[in-house]
C-alpha cells in the first residue's frame, strides 16, 4: 500500500508528469480507477490541452466532472475556453475604466496580453487553483498534466508569482503611505479626469489595487501550501525505459526538489518482457536493461514500479484495472 497516494490531511492531490507519449494519461486513469475501487471518492482532471483522457475511458468528457464508475469522476479542462472567458470578464471590467480613460488604447494592449508568453501556464495554474479550492468534495484529486516542460513551469509559478506579488505590495504600500501623508495635510484628495471625479484611495482597505494584490497573494499561498505539503500532494513521474525519458525524469526530479514539491513514485511504462530471446531486438532489450538498472540507482529515495508492454493498447476499464493494480499495489 503506497501511503503517499492515499488521503492523509484532507484530500490528496496527485500529479502525473512525464514526457509526451509515455503513458501519463493511461497510468493516471488506471491509478484513479483503483483508488476509486478502494472506496476513495476520486476526481481525475486532464489539464493537458491535447486531451485524451476521454479516449482512455472510452467516453466523451467535458469540463464538468462526469461519473465513470462508482466513486470515480473525470473531467477535461478546456484551456482555450478558460482563457477566453477570462479575457471576457476582464473586458467587462475595463469598460468601466474606459469612461475615464480614452487617451490610451488599452484594448490593443489586452489583445496582446492574450498572446503573451506564459498566459497558458497562468491559466493552467488558475484552473488547478479552482479545482483545489473545491477539493473538499473529494478524497483524491488526480491531475493528468501536459508534457513535463509546461507542467514544471506551472508548478514553479506559485513561487515566482509570490515574489512578484510581495514586491508589488511593497511599492503599493509606499504609494499609499505618501497619499496618507498628503491627506493629513491637505484633507481628502480628489482625482479628476475627463470631467469625472473620484476620491484617491489612501488606505489599504479602500484601495482596490491593494485588495486585488492581497487576495491574489492569498490564492497563491493556498496553492503553494497544498503542493508543497507531502501529506497532501504527491508527484508521480511516468517514463519509458529509454535514456531520453530517464534524463528528463531526472531533471524533473531536480526541479521539483528545488520547489519543495514531494516526488514519490516513478512508473516505468511499456517495459518489454520477453519469454524467449529474439535476436532482432536484442540491442534494444540490452538498452532497456541498462536503463532499468540506472533508474534503480538514480532514484534511490523514490518508489519504482514497472508496467510491462501489453499485447494490446490498455484501453477500457478492464485493462485499466490491470495497469492500475500494478501501479497502486495492494
Amino acid at each position: 500500500m503506497k501511503a503517499y497516494l492515499m488521503p492523509k490531511k484532507g484530500f490528496r492531490t496527485i500529479f502525473f508528469i512525464g514526457k509526451g507519449g509515455v503513458g501519463k494519461t493511461t497510468s493516471s486513469a488506471a491509478a484513479s480507477l483503483i483508488l476509486a475501487k478502494k472506496g476513495y471518492k476520486t476526481l481525475i482532471v486532464s489539464i493537458d490541452p491535447a486531451h485524451n483522457l476521454g479516449d482512455v475511458f472510452m467516453v466523451k468528457l467535458n469540463d464538468k466532472p462526469k461519473r465513470i464508475v462508482e466513486n470515480l469522476y473525470a473531467m477535461e479542462l478546456d484551456m482555450e475556453k478558460l482563457i477566453k472567458a477570462y479575457l471576457k470578464h476582464l473586458e467587462d471590467n475595463l469598460k468601466h475604466m474606459y469612461r475615464y480613460l480614452t487617451v490610451i488604447n488599452l484594448e490593443k494592449y489586452f489583445e496582446v496580453l492574450s498572446f503573451s508568453p506564459g498566459i497558458e501556464e497562468y491559466a493552467t495554474l488558475e484552473a488547478i487553483r479552482e479545482i483545489l479550492q473545491k477539493g473538499d468534495e473529494w478524497d483524491i484529486i488526480i491531475f493528468d498534466t501536459p508534457p513535463t516542460g509546461l507542467t514544471l513551469r506551472v508548478l514553479a509559478l506559485p513561487n515566482i508569482a509570490m515574489i512578484w506579488t510581495e514586491k508589488l505590495i511593497e511599492v503599493r504600500r509606499k504609494i499609499l503611505d505618501r497619499r496618507r501623508a498628503i491627506e493629513n495635510i491637505q484633507g481628502e484628495r480628489k482625482f479628476r479626469i475627463e470631467g469625472e471625479e473620484y476620491k484617491l484611495p489612501s488606505r489599504e482597505k479602500e484601495d482596490p489595487v491593494m485588495q486585488e494584490l492581497l487576495s491574489y497573494k492569498e490564492e497563491i499561498k493556498f496553492v503553494r501550501e497544498i503542493i508543497t505539503d507531502e501529506n497532501r500532494t504527491s508527484v508521480v513521474a511516468v517514463m519509458n525505459a529509454e535514456m531520453l525519458a530517464l534524463y528528463e525524469t531526472e531533471r524533473a526530479h531536480e526541479s521539483l526538489k528545488k520547489f519543495k514539491i514531494p516526488f514519490n513514485l516513478v512508473v516505468v511504462n511499456k517495459v518489454i518482457e520477453l519469454e524467449e530471446e529474439i535476436p532482432k531486438i536484442k540491442v534494444r532489450m540490452d538498452a532497456q536493461k541498462k536503463v532499468l538498472g540506472e533508474i534503480q540507482q538514480k532514484f534511490k529515495d523514490v518508489d519504482i514500479v514497472r508496467v510491462p508492454m501489453f499485447e494490446e493498447e490498455p484501453r477500457g476499464l478492464k485493462w485499466l484495472e490491470r495497469v492500475g493494480g500494478l501501479i497502486i499495489g495492494d
Binding site: L90, F110, W164, L168, V209, L213, Y216
Partner: peptide, 29 residues
C-alpha cells in the same frame, strides 16, 4: 512595472496584471 511587456522588461503574472488593470486609471494617467 505592470505594463513592463511594453518596454521589454519582464512582466508580473499576467493574471495579476489583468486583475489590477481596471483600477489603475490614475496610475496610467
Amino acid at each position: 512595472v505592470l505594463m513592463g511587456s511594453f518596454i521589454g522588461i519582464p512582466s508580473p503574472p499576467t493574471t495579476l496584471v489583468m486583475r489590477i488593470m481596471p483600477h489603475m486609471v490614475r496610475e496610467i494617467y
